[in-house]
């Protein structure tokens, strides 16, 4: 399953594509919503690992504008609920992720991203 928590960790890795290769742009996505167990400690602990702007942008691309543009310094329950939903409950089932720099297309099929490159594309 490709959720936004995973999307936030994937970058283009085509040979010589080293700048502006993150975040990958979501394209033609089909979504599914699935409930996940809420865990405030996990969310708090994970926040420093997130690229916030990339997360907000990806959330907007899938139609969720519940997150603030800047990561808040103080987190309350409502914020954590929204973060939980955005990171863990929105599943990208089909579609693609496109590199903003080299335009390489990484397909998503049956909820699994295919990040393999051809031999001549590997850095």
């Amino acid at each position: 399953m490709v959720r936004l928590i995973t999307h936030n960790l994937l970058a283009c890795h085509v040979k010589r594509c080293t700048t502006n290769n993150f975040p990958l742009q979501l394209k033609d996505v089909q979504l599914a919503l699935r409930e996940a167990e809420f865990n405030a400690d996990f969310l708090r602990g994970f926040m420093p690992r997130l690229e916030w702007t990339a997360l907000v942008q990806a959330a907007c691309q899938v139609g969720d504008d519940s997150l603030p543009l800047e990561a808040p310094e103080m987190v309350d329950d409502e914020f954590l609920k929204n973060l939980h939903h955005v990171l863990l409950e929105i599943h990208i089932e089909e579609g693609a992720m496109v590199c903003p720099n080299c335009q390489h297309v990484y397909p998503i099929s049956n909820g699994i991203p295919n990040m393999l490159l051809a031999e001549n594309e590997i850095g």
């Binding site: 960790l9 994937l10 699994i112 990040m115 393999l116 490159l117």
Partner: peptide, 9 residues
């Protein structure tokens, strides 16, 4: 993730 080792991560 279908990928070789850690490449996209």
């Amino acid at each position: 993730i279908t990928a070789s080792l850690t490449q996209p991560l």
